[in-house]
Design a protein around this nucleic acid. Structure first.
Lengths: 244, 244
DNA sequence: CGTTAGTTTGATGGTCCTCAAGCACTGTGG
DNA sequence: CCACAGTGCTTGAGGACCATCAAACTAACG
């Protein structure tokens, strides 16, 4: 409850676990090695090992895998406050690539820093583990979407999920949010062609549900959109981990 | 290198991390609370909380999510040696259901047992964390498959992955393996209709690539199958976690 | 011996892909 | 200042892939 401008990560974790002064301090310390990267140039490439992890503080990133035939599947998007490559640090597997969608700011976190932080403040470790688990739940939900929802519901669900995630770190509002993704990004994430993405967006727009134009998403009728997507934010908003 | 019959989990972990006597003992102790479940009856249901975890020692299980319209998406299959509900214990979120495909044998693991085991043998903790990370990588690969591979490649990839996983716990061989899944299971896992699964299987069989009949998968031409699926087992076989 | 679960095959049609082309906007270099 | 290329959005036409509906068949089981 002070006037300090907290990082998006701090903000996200605080929404679920009450963090003490000491924990906030450690969290702040993890943000020391600030770095920036330019749009389009891979941060980490498929197959690299022994990478550092990053805490994203500004800009968007996507994690993806490409196939032999050149098609790519975006697995997830990272927004401010998200960890990036956490798994590749704890274990040494970077099985996919990370590409900044815009120019970004991120704090580099070495494995040693992270392990030390975990040792000092177990509660923080739990909180971060919780965030990682939430990311995993999102991937699962993504899988369900691609496997069992048609293009329209998939898009609706995706835009709603993104809205909820952004709201948690203080970006955007219930009415909408700024979104730097192109229709190609959407296509690669949703397992559709860019052409079809365009048609689906048009249909949603003309149906008065949601408008995605010029880098901005506007929920024109949130209720009906939630209905169409069968969007249940339970997997995002669940209460925190064993926080006795 | 002794004559003791190790559990599938022990066997799996040993393939990647050399475990000392003490660690093997702790691992054995985790297998104490043996329980069995009958086919078709959910072990854990979507939305339950504070569940125990299980180590599957015999039989197959699938984890899935169902949607409002009744369709379901199978997220992953668990085979002997796999953990089940590990996430729901560490954090308290069971965001999907588990259904035994056959009658199964599993060891119940309470959160407290697990935490104690981790505290006693950090190397074991790392090994288990590695296994969890491997599971996550499989979900990602599954996502890519559904998003970017056609039905045939998807099926081919799935059957190959399963073969590799089973081989690791000593079930099946390079030529094939027993598989209790129905075509409905395959359909729900691969995001296809059961009818189409049947046709795809026929095509693969007639093409001389792989035969799935009467509960048995036979690789008729593994090389061409790998080629069709663009199967790269890197995400399964990677060397173990920071095991200095 | 009827019932149920699982497999197989045919017919029809919808969703979404591919190919193709046009448009708007931005930045770049002559 | 303007041609030109590059990026992203938009729309049309045709067709592939896969879903859905329907029905027959087999094996297992009480």
């Amino acid at each position: 409850m002070d006037a300090v401008a907290h990082s998006p990560l701090t903000r996200k974790l605080s929404a679920f676990v009450t963090l003490a002064e000491a924990e906030l301090a450690v969290l702040e310390r993890l943000h020391q090695r600030r770095r920036s990267f330019v749009a389009g140039q891979d941060l980490v490439h498929q197959g690299q090992s022994d990478q550092a992890a990053y805490i994203l503080s500004e800009g968007w990133v996507c994690s993806y895998k490409t196939q032999a035939d050149g098609s790519r599947q975006i697995v997830d998007f990272q927004i401010p406050g998200d960890f990036l490559g956490l798994r590749s640090v704890l274990l040494r597997t970077s099985d996919h690539s990370f590409e900044p969608i815009e120019d970004i700011q991120a704090a580099e976190v070495l494995a040693s820093d992270l392990l030390q932080a975990f040792a000092e403040t177990p509660r923080l470790a739990t909180a971060i583990l919780w965030a990682a688990s939430r990311d995993e739940a999102m991937v699962v939900e993504h899988l369900v979407g691609i496997g069992r929802r048609d293009a329209e519901a998939r898009m609706a669900h995706f835009l709603l999920e993104l809205g909820s995630r952004l709201a948690l770190v203080g970006i955007g509002s219930r009415e909408g949010y700024d979104c730097p993704l192109t229709q190609y990004h959407l296509a690669d994430a949703l397992g559709l062609s860019a052409v079809h993405v365009n048609r689906v967006l048009r249909k949603l727009r003309e149906g008065g549900l949601v408008t995605f134009r010029e880098g901005h998403v506007t929920f024109d009728n949130r209720e009906r959109l939630v209905d169409l997507a069968e969007f249940d934010p339970g997997y995002l908003d669940q209460s925190g981990p064993l926080l006795k």
